[in-house]
Each structure stands twice: as C-alpha cells, then as structure tokens.
Design a protein around this nucleic acid. Structure first.
Lengths: 130, 130
DNA sequence: CGGAATCCTATAGGATACTG
DNA sequence: CAGTATCCTATAGGATTCCG
C-alpha cells in the first residue's frame, strides 16, 4: 500500500518530521517507556522519570493523550487518583521507539569514539597538515 | 548480549535520550534521509531540505559528522566543493529512522483524528456531563 | 494527589552580512 | 560555493506558588 520509502513525498516528510518532533522532545520517549511497564499514576511517573518537572510531565502527558497514545483515567476519590496508560497506538509507538533505543545502545560506543576523535581534530587542526 | 529492553538501566536511558535528542532535532532526520539517496553537496542539500537555514544546515551536518554519521569531503577546487555522505553508521541510523517514519505514516490519520476529538472535547467540556 | 498559573532563563533557530 | 559571525526572537522548559 505504501510506496517505497526512498521516494520523496513532501506530505510524508512533514508527517514524519511532525511526529518525530513529538517523539524527540525531552520527555515523551521516557514517559512512553515507563508506561510500557503498565499504567502509572502521575506522581509515580514523576518519580520514575527523574528530572522531569511537574509542569513538563503534565504537558508531555497532555500531548500524548491528545495524540491518542495514552489514556487518562480519573478516579474521583480523595485524594484524587489519575492513571495513565498506553493505548494500542501508544504500544506500537513504544515498540518502534524501543528499536531506535536498541540502535542507540548498540552504537553508543562507536558514536562516543567518533565524537572524541572529532573533538581532538578540532582542537589541533594543524597536526595532520604537517 | 543485551539484556531485555524492559528492564530499567539508568545509563541506557541516558544514552537513548541523548541520541534521540539528536535525532529529534528539527533537521537531522531530514538531512539523513536526503543523504540516503547518495552523497550530496552543501547547497544541494540546502535546496532539498527546504526550509532549513544555511546556519542550521551547517550545524546539523557538523553534529552528524561529529557523531560519525556522515563524512565531509572537501574538494579544494574553485569554487570549492564539499560532499556529504552517510557512513555505515549513518546508514544503519537511516534504516531505523525510516521505520519510525513508516510508523508515523501508517498512523498519521489515527493520530490526527485523536487530536481532533481531543480538541473538540476541550472546547466544550460540559457536553458529556449532561 | 494532581494539577494550573505565573515567572524567568536558556537555548534553538531564523535573517542578514561578510569571507576565502 | 560553502561556509563563519553576529544579532535577534521565539520557544522550551525549570522553579515556585496556588488550588480542588
């Protein structure tokens, strides 16, 4: 159904870019990954993600909810309780994102080494011209 | 070799987050995808990516080069010519990123519809309480 | 507990002008 | 052509305070 991914369709590019900018933000992926372990409460997530501010967790979850990636369930108890869980769509995203994560882990060392080499070359640019 | 991806290793999380923040920036993915079609010159890329400023293209390419994802080849001619090409590492990233792209394309409509529903519900929050 | 609102700063990134 | 340098603005996002 899809045409081969190596042809350039502007509309698709925009789609991909748009989705990636959501996925690429500072917290979305981490939140999705934690939710991969099952539904979580707000502060539970807050503790798990570590480093996220309350504000950003709220915004991140709102965005995910808006895109149909997580559900938000309110229990009108006192104190209130709110559960967040991945939808089917969210699970499929998690799966894909995990693959990117695997790539990152597998190639971490190679990237870090390339980075070291690059930074070395930058600091002494005349060394190889001799 | 890798432990299952469903256990939480802080170090890995940081790696994934770090890599994703590179991939998730505004231009990296688009540049990598265009380079998937073979080596490109600077202004050639500039025209293909469409919307990218010269400054950001430079920064994006520098970042990719630093991480060992693209090579930069200078031909000391006049006018100068510089070719950018994916490395093996860059190709493997492209492959993974394309999968995320496929996901985005496949689920585009579902996401957009979820978004519409969400925005509707927000604008008339009392409608379902009746 | 689970937010919303406000304030403030750091950074991303665009536009422009200059250079080898 | 392929950058670099500078300036400027918009946005992301942290810290804090208040609320049901």
């Amino acid at each position: 159904m899809l045409s081969p991914s190596n042809i350039h369709v502007p509309d698709r590019c925009r789609t991909v870019t748009e989705i990636l900018s959501r996925v690429g933000d500072k917290w979305t992926v981490q939140v999705v990954m934690r939710l991969g372990g099952g539904p979580k409460r707000f502060n539970e997530l807050r503790r798990m993600v570590e480093g996220v501010s309350q504000r950003m967790l709220t915004l991140t979850l709102r965005g995910l909810e808006r895109d149909g990636l997580v559900t938000r369930t309110v229990f009108p108890t006192i104190p209130p309780r709110v559960d967040y869980a991945l939808t089917g769509l969210g699970c499929s995203l998690l799966k894909t994102v995990r693959e990117l994560g695997e790539w990152a882990i597998e190639n971490r060392e190679e990237i870090l080494e390339a980075r070291r080499r690059f930074d070395e070359g930058e600091s002494s640019p005349a060394s190889d011209a001799a």
